[in-house]
Nucleic acid binder design. Structure first.
Length: 769
DNA sequence: TCTTCCTAGGTTTTT
DNA sequence: CCTAGGAAGA
């Protein structure tokens, strides 16, 4: 233990060894945040201040939770099982499974992912004859999640306009429908837990007393409901409960769009009268010029808690800035630079190419592919979100809870078995009439539709009966076969990958069973005995003794139920990996938390980064600036920034100005690789750079653009499209279009913040930049 | 019921 | 430009 503390710097040590009071740790990028969190836990246990069961540590992603567990078990000889380390959703799921009765849920409740939730909302709109032009399903989804993220039920939402009133009404219906089906969405997991604990004093008291130390990672990303839940657990206003140890970085708050509220940091400071505020400002990742850039840039944000990163690593190299003529050339340049980095010994997977939005990756991918350079794109569909896997899961969901209508509709006619839209409509009417699930309504159906539906129900029942005593992986195997999913995809042209994914589901089940400790025993026997060993008893208000949620999930629910919630809560990896060394392509958002030797920040143009839609929201540009801060601080030794004069976006060529963020970076830390090219830059570039690449010249699309550029490059007025200019009143701009002949030419110029102007070139005094 | 055509819409993402 | 989802035809 002493060894562990020995490795810490004074700030980290202070944070790790704080007294058991609420504390806020402002942890800058690369300052050893995870180390502090894990060492704090280890220190608390090692010094006997708390047992493993008194610890709760909350993260946002499964990856972060896993990382914490791994590091902890390396530090501590203690079994980490007693500790509650997980995501908000995972921990709430655990609580709700154990206290399902008090939470008014079926024990085998199922979790809707966003896709399921949307399809359920669409169904709801249809069933209630709501005009989905006026009330789009997506808007309602957003409305409901937003309300829940703030801890509000339908009745709590203030509605002033008719549209909001309608949404509130539908929100209420949606919740009722979820309850009938025995399903909960992601936000509901948290809201239900919050309500359960607020309402149930003995339960609340039990957990308040139990968790002496609650540690929260990425606190700046918490939404209102999450903060409320934490307050409740920490006994805010009740004078009991454990110490809240919050770690976060307000400068890295980039998730406001999904409900995160940075304000929670200062609210926490105020609410809990935090006297222990520690800043971790020593950075162990990046060289000086990179940190200087980050510090300088972020200082343009208002309302910061305030912090400045420093390093012992020396100044290192300047940030290299490159202006290219087009997005195609930008991609070529990246390839050339990446090649030379690799020639100098930088491993391929230590080079990251970042962009603001996913649409930007295509051009880069295209160029990388043509150049034969291996790359990996992050993001995209996760394993459990793939259509074929979701189908298989839907069969399993129906066996576990037949009233899940989403699951029913997904597979009732997949693979096709002659149940068409008309049959479904009749069935939905019947279900509506009796207020029951689709599955339960099947017996009311007659005729051809009735027999086809009846056969489907028999299929599900048969699978359930046949597998009830089988271990989970076997169960999955049987379902894959009985559902005829495998044979169905075998007949499809592109079915091979899908079949492979389906077979992986058996492995996933096997791995799950092993990791979660679900033995071969049938869960039914486990109840009472397991109760005797696991967890404490809580006596509720009505005098009933119940077990706290410490028991392994295996004692509370069937392996199947557990596996299904695992599939919803942990969507699995997004493809990629490929194992081998590859360049890393991803959005700036997904780069958060990662680090690389060399980083390219591409597309640094007004409208892209900062994104144009950010200017519409209050503090939108501040959030973009934080995003840029995150991007910069990913780099260890070398950082590139690039922007381009013209870029193809949504099928249109756009001419953007360079990002305003260049004006917010310290000049002495930047190294401009490309002087601005005057006059006919296309002709200039052609011979000097990788432009005369045969691939580029012969490529269809590329060639078209090249022609276009050549045509446009020299207007008789002496100006050219794409050229950067300055105007006394409007400032810097980019020429987007030129009309008219030499004497009477007018130019359309994008002045960014000052807007789009059309100026007469013979009158306006423009300066070349 | 399956195919093909057409149109709308296109920051950022985890659970 | 590209993709997904809905609507009309085979």
């Amino acid at each position: 233990m002493q060894n562990l503390l020995h490795k810490l710097n004074p700030e980290q040590l202070a944070a790790v060894t704080l007294p058991p009071q609420s504390a806020l740790i402002l942890a800058g990028a690369g300052s050893g945040k995870t180390r502090v969190l894990t060492t704090r836990i280890a220190w608390l246990i090692q010094t006997g201040q708390v047992g493993p069961s008194g610890i709760m540590a909350v993260t946002f992603t499964n990856k972060a939770a896993k990382e914490m567990l791994t590091r902890l078990s390396a530090m501590l000889p203690v079994n980490t099982r007693g500790m509650w380390i997980g995501t908000f959703h995972g921990l709430c799921n655990r609580l709700l499974r154990s206290h399902y009765r008090d939470a008014a849920l079926p024990q085998a409740f199922q979790i809707l992912d966003t896709q399921d939730q949307l399809s359920m909302i669409k169904r709801l709109l249809k069933a209630n004859n709501v005009d989905d032009e006026k009330y789009p399903a997506k808007d309602l989804l957003y409305f409901i999640n937003n309300a829940k993220d703030q801890g509000l039920r339908a009745q709590d939402v203030e509605a002033h306009e008719p549209i909001t009133r309608k949404f509130v009404e539908l929100y209420e219906l949606y919740d009722q429908q979820c309850q009938r089906e025995g399903v909960v969405d992601f936000a509901e997991l948290l809201l239900r837990t919050y309500e359960l604990l607020s309402r149930n004093q003995p339960l609340r008291h039990h957990y308040q007393t139990r968790f002496r130390h609650i540690l929260v990672d990425e606190f700046q990303d918490t939404n209102d409901l999450q903060y409320k839940l934490l307050k409740l657990l920490a006994g805010y206003g009740e004078g009991q409960g454990g110490a809240l140890f919050a770690v976060g970085d307000d400068d890295q708050s980039i998730y406001a769009f999904r409900g995160a509220n940075v304000g929670n940091m200062s609210a926490f400071e105020r609410d809990f009268k935090v006297t222990n505020l520690i800043k971790l400002e020593q950075n162990y990742r990046s060289h000086g010029h990179i940190l200087d850039s980050a510090n300088y840039l972020i200082s343009y944000n208002r309302n910061r808690l305030g912090k400045n990163l420093r390093t012992d690593a020396g100044q290192g190299e300047q940030v290299r800035v490159y202006e290219s003529s087009s997005d195609l050339e930008e991609a070529q340049w990246i390839i050339e630079e990446a090649k030379s980095l690799m020639a100098d010994g930088t491993p391929r997977n230590e080079i990251a190419i970042l962009y603001r939005s996913n649409a930007q990756s295509r051009v880069i991918e295209h160029a990388l592919f043509a150049a034969g350079m291996p790359y990996t794109v992050y993001g995209g569909l996760r394993y459990f979100q793939r259509a074929e896997v979701k189908h298989a899961i839907a069969y399993l969901q129906l066996m576990d809870n037949p009233h899940n209508d989403s699951a029913f509709l997904r597979v009732v006619n997949f693979p096709t078995r002659g149940i068409g839209a008309r049959s479904i409509e009749l069935l939905q009417n019947a279900a509506e009439q009796y207020g029951i699930s689709l599955y339960a309504a099947v017996p009311y159906m007659t005729g051809k539709a009735g027999s086809a539906l009846g056969a489907f129900v028999k299929l599900v029942e048969g699978a359930r009966f046949e597998t009830q005593n089988l271990p989970l992986p076997e169960m999955v195997r049987v379902v894959l076969e009985r559902s005829t999913l495998l044979t169905h995809y075998a007949t499809e042209k592109e079915g091979a990958d899908r079949i492979e994914n389906l077979e992986q589901l058996v492995d996933a089940a096997a791995q799950f069973v092993q990791e979660e400790g679900f033995g071969q025993q049938a869960p039914a026997h486990l109840g009472p005995q397991a109760a005797a060993v696991a967890g404490e008893q809580i006596v509720t208000e009505d005098g009933v003794a119940i077990l706290d949620a410490d028991a392994p999930l295996a004692t509370v629910m069937s392996p199947l139920s557990a596996f299904l919630s695992h599939a919803s809560l942990e969507a699995g990896d997004a493809q990629a990996q490929a194992g081998q060394e590859a360049l890393q392509l991803m959005t700036v958002h997904s780069a958060k938390g990662l680090e690389f030797d060399a980083v390219f920040i591409t597309g640094m143009e007004e409208g892209l980064f900062p994104h144009e839609s950010s200017s519409r929201e209050a503090d939108g540009v501040d959030e973009e600036r934080r995003l840029m801060y995150v991007a910069i601080t990913r780099a260890r030794r070398r950082l590139y920034m690039s922007f381009t004069q013209q870029r193809m976006l949504h099928g249109q060529t756009r001419f953007n100005m360079k990002s305003r963020f260049f004006d917010e970076l310290p000049e002495e830390s930047l190294k401009w690789l490309s002087p601005r090219v005057q006059g006919n830059w296309f002709a200039n570039r052609k011979s000097t750079t990788a432009w005369d690449d045969a691939e580029f010249r012969n490529g269809g699309v590329d060639n078209k653009i090249a022609k276009q550029i050549t045509q446009k490059s020299g207007h008789s007025s002496g100006w050219r499209i794409g050229e950067s200019v300055a105007h006394a009143k409007f400032g810097e701009g980019v020429i987007v279009n030129i009309e008219g002949g030499a004497g009477a030419a007018r130019a359309q110029i994008n002045f960014g913040a000052a807007g789009m102007k059309v100026l007469d070139l013979s009158v306006a005094k423009l300066e070349r930049l």
